[in-house]
Amino acid sequence: MRKIEKTGKSKKLTVYSLVTLVTIVLLQSCGSVPVTGRKQLLLVSDDEVISLSLKQYQEYMNTAKVIKGTKDAEMVARVGQRLASAVESYLSNNGYATEIQKYKWEFSLVQDQSVNAFAMPGGKVVINSGLIPVAGDEASLAVVVGHEIAHVVAKHANERLSQQIALQYGGAMAGNILGGAAASELGQTVFGLGAQVGVMLPYARKQEYEADRLGVIFMAMAGYDPRVSVPFWQRMAESAGGGNNFEFLSTHPTDANRIKQLQSVVPEALKFYTGSTTNQPNASSTNKTSTNTSKDWTF
């Protein structure tokens, strides 16, 4: 009887210790998203996530037809760098200066008629040529680029990978998990370039809404009128209803809830936009952008 009791206590202590260890790991692995402040689970280091995703990105770019030297390619690069500079200025002035060192921004336009775009950890953003005519102007393109940059800044890929680890391994030590074949398998699952939807597997609805919110704030920081975001997404939804191949919409929330959220976020974004007013712009003013891109946002 004594032997059995001792074994039982030992098992209870082992289970308790394991639960305690997992709890400590999870608590130490919590991060928060800039601007929104949402808490998130980050079990994997940024360097590991970038390394995993970079291999997928390079394989994709080796086969993609990159467009260079055209007006559209120059617009993609211009919008991307303008947004990146504004975001880095905000991060630098709000306690996230160390994050900037991890970004190696690249903004590429590739020949692909599907209306799509994606971003990878570390700052690799790809826009398909099919999205350009739908955007129609630089400010509307900034809506999409801002959305993709938001995924990078909010570490949504890291969060999704961490959630996969927690589900499959019960919160085991991430460093051990990512040491072998599991790393490649999880990388394929999370980043999945070329799989199912053509580029990246969809993020959770919560992350997509957060990227929408951050995206319009980021575009406002860069001097683009955030009010163009609502008509842009309405235009995208209407065009998609005509039977076009809109992969970008197929993996993102497209119902009335998205438009409703954007309408509620625009007033918040206007606080970051120089020269903004409380009145809704008319059709001609929504395509204009502010020339002020140098403001250092500090809050």
Results as ranks from 00 to 15, higher is better:
3 K>Q: 13
4 I>L: 15
4 I>G: 02
10 S>P: 04
15 V>L: 13
20 T>G: 08
22 V>K: 14
34 P>Q: 13
35 V>Y: 13
37 G>T: 10
37 G>W: 01
44 V>P: 01
47 D>R: 15
47 D>E: 15
48 E>A: 14
48 E>R: 14
53 S>T: 14
58 Q>K: 10
59 E>W: 05
61 M>D: 00
61 M>T: 13
62 N>R: 14
64 A>M: 00
68 K>G: 00
69 G>M: 03
76 V>A: 00
77 A>Q: 09
78 R>A: 06
79 V>L: 04
79 V>Q: 02
80 G>H: 02
82 R>S: 11
88 E>S: 13
89 S>W: 07
92 S>F: 13
94 N>W: 09
96 Y>N: 09
99 E>G: 04
99 E>F: 12
111 Q>D: 13
112 D>Y: 02
115 V>H: 06
120 M>R: 07
122 G>E: 06
125 V>Q: 00
125 V>E: 03
126 V>K: 00
128 N>S: 11
133 P>R: 04
135 A>F: 04
136 G>H: 03
138 E>C: 03
139 A>W: 00
140 S>M: 02
141 L>A: 05
143 V>R: 00
151 H>F: 01
154 A>M: 06
155 K>P: 04
158 N>G: 10
166 A>G: 04
168 Q>N: 12
170 G>E: 13
173 M>W: 11
176 N>R: 14
176 N>C: 12
178 L>P: 02
178 L>Q: 04
183 A>C: 06
183 A>Y: 05
184 S>M: 13
186 L>M: 15
187 G>Y: 06
189 T>N: 12
191 F>R: 04
196 Q>H: 05
202 P>K: 07
206 K>I: 10
208 E>M: 04
208 E>G: 03
212 D>F: 00
215 G>R: 00
216 V>E: 00
216 V>W: 03
216 V>C: 01
221 M>Q: 07
222 A>Q: 03
224 Y>A: 08
226 P>E: 07
229 S>G: 03
234 Q>K: 14
234 Q>N: 07
234 Q>T: 15
236 M>F: 08
237 A>E: 15
242 G>E: 12
244 N>K: 15
245 N>L: 14
245 N>C: 09
249 L>H: 06
254 T>I: 11
255 D>E: 10
257 N>H: 10
263 Q>H: 04
264 S>C: 06
265 V>F: 03
272 F>H: 11
272 F>L: 09
272 F>Y: 09
282 N>W: 10
282 N>R: 08
283 A>L: 12
